[in-house]
């Protein structure tokens, strides 16, 4: 017994009003929040650039990369130890070092990076070897219709049709944001598939395998669309990035 039987607390039910008021605000935010965010994001991005403490970058708005990994600590690859294997249905399987890749023709792109979970980073500079160049070097044999890409995190995989892989805006990226791709961004070598959602741009790339058909990658086995075109897949309507 904490209160004498039958006694009711006096006063106005303010707690209930606060509770219901917050629920109402939350519901209004769900319906109208997207429009609010559209106005808020450029303002906050502007402030982030001018904020020397970096505190504003920790607020839940703005335009920055978020780090995603599906495994625990990913082993760091040194520039000297790194190898990119090209294998499967090809005439000339190969293993490229980072120096090999750096000596190949490079393409530079400035494109937005759009994540399927909603965040977008505008105007990211990318540079690297077109994936089509590596495919030409290897020479796909008849019957090869797709590429399977593997990450040295030991878990992540991705796939593209051969036609998608040959697009000029699909890069084996060596540079990002004007510097070599850092480990956290998937370095030393990652994919950048410009017209597609971020999950297609596999990080820590170490194997390109030509296959007879498209093999669903890590997220595609978990429900994401095989073709990750920005704006027309995964139930989203973002502005295209290419």
């Amino acid at each position: 017994m904490t209160t004498p039987a039958g006694r009711r607390p006096e006063g106005a039910p303010v707690g209930r009003r606060v509770f219901l008021g917050l629920l109402g605000l939350g519901a209004a935010g769900i319906v109208g929040g997207a429009a609010l965010q559209e106005r808020l994001t450029p303002l906050v991005a502007e402030l982030q650039i001018r904020d020397p403490t970096g505190l504003i970058a920790t607020l839940p708005v703005g335009q920055g990369f978020r780090f995603y990994s599906v495994t625990g600590a990913v082993p760091e690859a040194t520039a000297a130890g790194y190898r990119l294997a090209v294998s499967g249905l090809v005439e000339r399987p190969a293993e490229h070092t980072l120096t090999d890749l750096q000596a190949m023709p490079q393409t530079e792109l400035v494109r937005d990076f759009q994540c399927v979970t909603g965040w977008r980073v505008p105007d990211v500079p990318w540079a690297g070897v077109p994936l089509s160049h590596l495919l030409d070097l290897a020479g796909p044999v008849d019957g090869a219709t797709a590429v399977r890409l593997t990450s040295f995190d030991g878990e992540y995989t991705e796939s593209l049709t051969l036609e998608q892989a040959r697009r000029p805006d699909v890069l084996v990226a060596l540079q990002m944001l004007g510097a070599p791709v850092t480990h956290d961004h998937g370095g030393p070598v990652r994919l950048y598939a410009a017209p597609m959602y971020g999950y297609k741009s596999i990080k820590w790339l170490n194997r390109i395998e030509l296959t007879a058909d498209v093999q669903p990658g890590y997220w595609e086995e978990r429900g994401y669309d095989l073709d990750g075109w920005v704006g027309s897949t995964n139930g989203r309507d973002d502005d295209p990035t290419a």
């Binding site: 769900i30 319906v31 929040g33 609010l36």
Partner: peptide, 11 residues
């Protein structure tokens, strides 16, 4: 709808 998901994320 997608815009609700964006709003829900913000809230």
């Amino acid at each position: 709808p997608l815009s609700w998901r964006t709003g829900a994320t913000l809230v």
